[in-house]
Write a protein that binds this DNA or RNA. Structure first.
Lengths: 87, 87
DNA sequence: ATAGTATTTAGATATTTGACTAAATATATA
DNA sequence: TATATATTTAGTCAAATATCTAAATACTAT
């Protein structure tokens, strides 16, 4: 849980998740969308991977990143307890 | 948006939110639940307040903290875009 | 094998964060 | 008014974070 919130606590990483919503992308393609060095993006991707928010799959010399929405479902459950509060 | 994720990225602050789900509490009551100094909790409460996740109301010499669930609703919307992804 | 492309790992650095103690502010009560 | 209680503000410090450049790893193609 902790690591998921941590992964979400960065605009770059949230942007990456939104990009992956449209389509799977390679690390290089993701790098092109930002004015941030490759290694930094690689680090962000690693955090997202640790949080299991994305999945990496090697395809030849490329690594494709894609969303894993099941973790989002879990986070949603946490939020739902607040949603249901009526007053 | 940024500040909300930041506020949520800490176990102490998330615990505070869960506590406030049960009932409104004074800063002092909240402090008692943790092995953390008053000033540190005060700082956490300030962040939650900045994120508008909680509301503070002065009542005599006490300050009561309560949840503001409308911000949770907004965050939920952000998550929902991922939820709806079908594959 | 050599060179080129894709990506990560390592190491360095500046900024942010969470904790503390001490001091300040605000209210209640004797 | 003087004192006690509740809470925040200020200042400090260690740990965590985000960024960078340089080097390492892995695959592709000549």
């Amino acid at each position: 849980m902790n690591i998921v919130f941590k992964a979400l606590n960065d605009p770059t990483r949230r942007k990456i998740l939104e990009m992956l919503l449209a389509r799977d992308m390679t690390a290089g393609e993701i790098v092109e969308e930002f004015n941030i060095s490759g290694p930094s993006i690689s680090h962000h991707l690693d955090l997202l991977k640790q949080a299991k928010l994305v999945v990496a799959e090697k395809e030849g010399q490329f690594i494709y990143y894609s969303l894993n929405t099941t973790v989002v479902d879990e986070i949603m459950k946490w939020f739902l307890q607040f949603k249901s509060k009526k007053k």
